[in-house]
Amino acid sequence: MTTRAAFLKLLTRQLLYPVLQAEGFEGTGQTLRRIAGPAIHVFNVQGASGGKQCYLNLGAHLDFLPTEGGGQVAPTEIEESHCVFRDRMDPPPGPAYGWAYGSSMAETEETVAFIVSEWSGPGRAFFARHGSYPQGFVQMLRETDPTAIHARTALHLARIAVHLGERSIAQALVDTGLAKAPERATSLKADLEKVLGD
């Protein structure tokens, strides 16, 4: 069984530093960040319970938004869990959840090589969708069907719309968010009601 340390060492050598750092990500350890204007991108390696696999977390945030769960965090310290846009790079289908460290170094090398190849597809695609500000986010707002998103997503997008001066889009998102929010979600409703007053 390959250890977590051996897996991370190989992943760091083949993806985190040579590839991500070449694309503007900075940091040490298991979390790297890229800051371009208000856009913040986070790549994080999270160990899974059981010690045999990990998750590859992707996060995107805008520095004028409250973090997920409320509050403010310095862009250089933001974690993937703080980001309002989050996803994971998924491993191939199989019995394991997360990316398995492997039962041998050969398996580990194969997994890491696959992760590097996946970065060029799903990894880069996630950050491209949340990349250029304001153009990319204007496009996101115009392509979003308010009826097809969750109330919390409507809140985040409404805040972005207000920041971009798109008040009619913000109003539609607030209305949809309020209509979809569960009755018990009082703080979410209060946040939605404040968006256009901010």
Rank of each mutant, 00 (worst) to 15 (best):
I149N: 00
G59Y: 06
D87Q: 10
G71W: 09
F7C: 01
F137Y: 15
F126G: 03
G71S: 11
A148D: 15
P93G: 07
D63I: 01
S187E: 13
W119Q: 04
G197D: 14
A185F: 05
D87L: 10
A154R: 02
V116G: 13
A113R: 14
M1E: 00
T3S: 14
A148S: 15
Q72A: 09
P18H: 02
L16Q: 05
L20H: 12
M1R: 06
L173C: 09
R88F: 06
Q135K: 05
T108D: 01
G131H: 10
G47E: 05
K52Q: 07
A39R: 11
V138F: 02
G27Q: 07
P134I: 14
G71H: 09
N57A: 10
R34K: 15
R86N: 05
L141A: 04
E143Q: 15
A190L: 11
L16H: 02
L15I: 06
E80P: 03
A48H: 04
V19E: 11
L192C: 11
W119Y: 13
I115Q: 14
A181H: 04
A148L: 12
G123A: 03
T153C: 00
T12Y: 01
E68A: 14
R34G: 01
E79Y: 06
F126T: 03
M89T: 03
A154I: 03
A128Q: 14
A22H: 12
H156P: 00
D198A: 14
V84C: 04
A179S: 10
V174Q: 07
V45E: 04
G70Q: 03
H41N: 08
D191I: 07
I115L: 11
P134S: 06
H163E: 15
S103P: 00
H82A: 09
V195M: 04
P93H: 10
E193R: 14
G136R: 02
R129H: 11
Y55S: 11
V162R: 13
I115E: 10
Q14M: 09
F114S: 08
W99D: 03
A172M: 10
G98S: 02
R159W: 01
A106Q: 11
G50E: 02
R167Y: 15
L58F: 03
G121P: 12
L11H: 03
Q21H: 07
T108R: 12
